[in-house]
Amino acid sequence: MASPFESYDDLEDADERLQAADPAERRVAIIALGHSGDPAAIGHLARMVDDPDAGVRQQVAMALGEFDGPEAAAALVKLLVDPERIVAAAAADSLAEFKDPASADVILPLVKHSHAFVRMGALRALKELRRKDTLKPALEALQDGDAAVRVQAIGVIGFLKLEESIPALTSLINDPDAHVRRAAVSALAFSHMKPAAETITRALKDEDWMVREMAAETLGLNVNGAVAADQLIASLDDAFWQVRLKAVRSLGKMKIERAVRPIGNCVTHEQANLRKEAAAALGEIAGADGEPFLVMIANDPDPDVRKNARWAQHQIAAKKAKAGA
């Protein structure tokens, strides 16, 4: 009987198989190398990046994704600039799974490549590597003419969480592309500096509802979010219930007492999702002036709303009891 275990000798005849005349056979050999998990396979795979067959190169890009570190990254970088999109796309996906910061050295130069797809792929890969020396090139990439590249650059900067990047991120608030503005707002969440919170606050007035939604949510995550309490309260009148909902949630999370009434006014909105979050926020703030609103929805047709209303009343009662004790 053959061994019942998977083999660990996949590399044995690799070189020979990689030279097969038939591209399909080369592909099969590459699959085996990727599957081996043996770092010695990287060298074999690296030699295949110039294979004349695009399908083979695509397979190499996928197989290299099974590894990590500078050697595999160097081979993938060559595939990222491949003229065939299927190859480049596979390389970009593989690089995005890398975690070893040392891989950044070979990826960094591509941030300045002439093709937007390559620049995007490189920045996407750098994000998870979180290396400080990627900040400068990423900041420069914020000027890129391609919006998708700018979004990826924001990611690299945002993952690093360095206060020095705040001015650059702030300037993006006027970017012509809504995706860029949305990403920039989200990237400001970490900052402890007031200007970051102020910038997010300004985004509450953005023309795109998804940017406004992100701003309302991000203020709830930012340490200085409370500076925007009044503006968040104003957002409770936003034309989109999605934005109101996030504003309600952030106000609740920050326990803004003067928001109770304006939040209370949301409990009769036609959108049950909003009524439900309004009830929950009233509970989080637990101000006694929230009670009348909760009474109003005690018999709401939506069980989730009723449930949160009950929970909120309980919170208010508990707070009162504590104050009395």
Binding site: D22, A24, E25, R27, V28, I31
Partner: peptide
């Protein structure tokens, strides 16, 4: 299909 070339994926 390239099963005849050894693929069994």
């Amino acid at each position: 299909c390239i099963a005849d070339k050894g693929c069994t994926v």
